[in-house]
């Protein structure tokens, strides 16, 4: 999905990652398709939210995008250049990414000071004197620069995550990938960090890839939203359009699962909650991968895989009954 002529900052093309898994006792090696043909793009200064349940391949996608994992198939392009191009060119491109991880206490070396951890990306670039930059960065993320001399375990969870953000931003990356970066914080802290991220983006113009299972958080921070299910993109749209009109039954279910302080929403939650677990990505369902849990599924869904198609206003969805579905679910809810 190339946009109008100009090369986007980040392009991910038909990315696939398979893992070979040997289950206990079994002789054969089976293929786990963690990410199965994902394409996306991200413009400078933009935030793209990726939402899905745990086990849908979000984290693998994040690691593939930043170059911590090599894809089995497909490419990741930054300014049109492949990040896995051999030699210095590829290495230089991989350095344009930074990442903020889920577990704030585990994302910094417990034996080094916070300052040393924050300075690491700059040092790796060959910068000698990092003290000033660390101080400035810590101030920018709302931390007392004196915390630089502490060890990570002496900080609170929120402080640790702010420090992680400081580390991610210190070497001026083009893109910061957030992999569930606020999931382990409590609600009030989540809001603070989201606001911090928005402010920082305004100041620094960094692009975010914001990956989360929390639809509300994704909608709050993203310009555009992608919904993933079992390694595939099932819906992609501008954030506002998406929040007003989620098309895929899975998106609808996800949205109904979120808690919103709205009586109408609460009443409508009804029985559209997702039933059962995500099927094993080692043995994905035939046809549409969501048909085993979909309230609208027909025989067609089990047989024919729906492709991503434009449902108007640049809103992409992979469902045979998307438009009808959205309405139908709504009326069912109304009847209850």
């Amino acid at each position: 999905m190339a946009s109008e002529g100009k090369t986007p900052l980040l392009q991910v093309e038909n990315l696939k990652k398979q893992f070979h898994v040997r289950s206990r006792g079994a002789r054969d090696i089976r293929l786990l398709r963690a990410v199965d043909g994902v394409s996306l793009h991200l413009e400078a200064g933009e935030t793209l939210g990726i939402v899905g349940e745990s086990g849908c391949g979000k984290s693998t996608l994040a690691r593939l995008t930043v170059g911590l994992l090599q894809p089995s198939e497909g490419r990741v392009l930054i300014d049109g250049g492949d990040i896995w191009e051999p030699g210095a060119a590829g290495r230089e491109r991989r350095r344009k990414f930074q990442m903020v991880f889920q577990n704030p206490s585990g994302s910094m070396n417990p034996r080094r000071t916070v300052g040393a951890s924050v300075a690491e990306p700059l040092q790796a670039k060959g910068v000698r004197n990092t003290a000033e930059a660390v101080e400035r960065m810590l101030t920018l993320v709302g931390l007392d620069p004196a915390l630089a001399t502490r060890k990570p375990h002496q900080l609170s969870g929120g402080q640790q995550q702010r420090a992680s953000i400081a580390r991610a931003l210190i070497a001026d990356p083009a893109i910061v990938v957030h992999d569930e970066s606020i999931a382990s914080l409590d609600i009030s802290l989540q809001a603070q960090i989201l606001n911090l991220l928005l402010d920082l983006q305004e100041d620094l113009g960094t692009s975010y890839l914001f990956i989360s299972h929390d639809l509300a958080a994704v909608q709050a921070i993203s310009h555009r939203v992608i919904v993933m299910y079992l390694g595939e993109v099932v819906e992609a749209s501008a954030a506002e359009e998406f929040s007003g009109r989620p098309l895929h039954p899975y998106s609808v279910a996800l949205r109904n699962a979120t808690l919103l302080p709205d009586p109408a929403h609460e009443r409508a939650r009804g029985d559209t909650a997702l039933r059962g677990d995500v099927p094993s990505p080692m043995n994905p369902p035939s046809g549409c991968r969501f048909h085993t849990r979909c309230p609208l599924a027909t025989d067609l869904c089990a047989q024919q895989k729906p492709l991503l198609r434009d449902a108007g206003r640049g809103h992409l969805v992979a469902c045979h009954y998307a438009e009808a579905g959205a309405g139908e679910v709504a009326t069912q809810e109304g009847a209850l």
Partner: peptide, 11 residues
């Protein structure tokens, strides 16, 4: 995760 972070930093 801190090792991933170090690798990402280009260490």
């Amino acid at each position: 995760e801190y090792l991933d972070a170090a690798r990402l930093a280009g260490v």
